[in-house]
């Protein structure tokens, strides 16, 4: 019993360390990739090819003065960064990186990830409200509207693969794709998932909550030092979570020929992460009404139609 607990703790520690390293190097990849897309070089000075840049950034953030403005609601202001970061990291507990590499294999794994991603919005709402600042409040109001809208579309699109696999267990969903990736029969759901995943993580072109040009930085404008870094970590951890979920639900997870399972999983996840960066370098930011129209009038009806058709087909085949 005690041994099992210690073993689980070690697994959790390894996954958290890997995630944080991944987050750090994703900021580097982001600057490099977008740099090259815009015919620049990106960071080159710190270390060979700028590879030590994330470490330098981390050190800089830690060494900075942690300022708390006078008129903030202190308890909420202090708790908000944690609520922004913890759900993103906790979601990794159920993701099957390969046949044997996971912390927990629970029956409602998919719902667990969805529940955590819906709780993640509290970090944004609380920081916006507690900051007692106009920009922060505007940013968090936009964000809560956006996340609630796109969560619906995301949930509906996820139900397609769930119906095909007949399970909410992420490992069983992966195993059900041995013959054919769900991306093929569920292509509509895949497109809807990709769009709403970008919106759900507040990334460009849906980064209205932190639109620099109009809201300076949105909800985290009053934060500095490590508290700011925690929002940053949370955002990137969430990107990894939706990318892993995309790999599990639509791209066959760890299945694949020749290479070891974990490598397949990482390739699929990183391909989706690259898609995030690609979008950011390509598309301009949407206007708020366009964002709401896209979510409620286009994505949700299509997702509902897809769900209906999938259920009918699955029912016809099973009987």
């Amino acid at each position: 019993m005690v041994l099992a607990i210690v073993f689980t703790l070690i697994k959790i520690l390894i996954i958290i360390v890997c995630t944080l390293t991944g987050v750090a190097y994703m900021t580097y990849a982001e600057r490099k990739v977008i740099g090259h897309m815009q015919v620049r070089l990106g960071p080159v000075h710190t270390g060979p090819k700028g590879l030590l840049q994330p470490l330098a950034d981390g050190l800089k953030l830690m060494a900075k003065e942690d300022m708390t403005p006078d008129m903030v609601d202190k308890p909420v202001f202090y708790v908000a960064p944690f609520l922004g970061m913890v759900p993103g990291l906790a979601a990794f507990a159920v993701i099957p990186f390969s046949e044997n590499i996971y912390v927990a294999n629970i029956n409602v794994g998919l719902l667990y990830v969805l529940a955590l991603s819906s709780v993640g919005v509290y970090g944004i709402i609380m920081s916006g409200w507690a900051s007692n600042s106009k920009y922060a409040t505007m940013g968090s109001l936009r964000s809560s509207a956006q996340v609630i809208s796109y969560e619906t579309a995301m949930g509906l699109s996820i139900l397609g693969p769930v119906l095909l696999a007949g399970s909410l267990n992420l490992k069983e969903i992966t195993e059900a794709q041995r013959g054919l990736w769900f991306m093929v029969p569920q292509f509509v759901a895949f497109v809807i998932y990709s769009i709403s995943a970008v919106a759900e993580t507040n990334r460009a072109p849906f980064d209205l909550p932190e639109a620099e040009t109009e809201l300076v930085a949105g909800f985290h404008v009053e934060y500095s030092s490590m508290r700011f870094a925690m929002f940053f970590l949370g955002e990137y951890a969430n990107m990894y979570v939706v990318a892993s979920m995309c790999a599990v639900l639509f791209l066959g997870g760890y299945t694949g020929p020749l290479l070891p399972p974990i490598v397949w999983f990482l390739i699929k996840m990183l391909a989706f992460m690259f898609f995030f960066l690609w979008l950011r370098a390509t598309l301009p930011r949407l206007r708020f009404d366009q964002l709401m129209n896209l979510g409620w009038k286009i994505l949700i009806p299509i997702a509902l139609a897809n769900l209906l058709i999938t259920s009918i087909v699955v029912y016809a085949i099973r009987n």
Partner: peptide, 22 residues
């Protein structure tokens, strides 16, 4: 348990917060 967190914490309470903040 999952539905409890998803629906009550993730949707309904967020809407409350939204209204209260406005």
């Amino acid at each position: 348990a999952a539905i409890q967190v998803m629906v009550y914490a993730g949707a309904i309470l967020v809407l409350y917060m939204f209204v209260v903040m406005l």
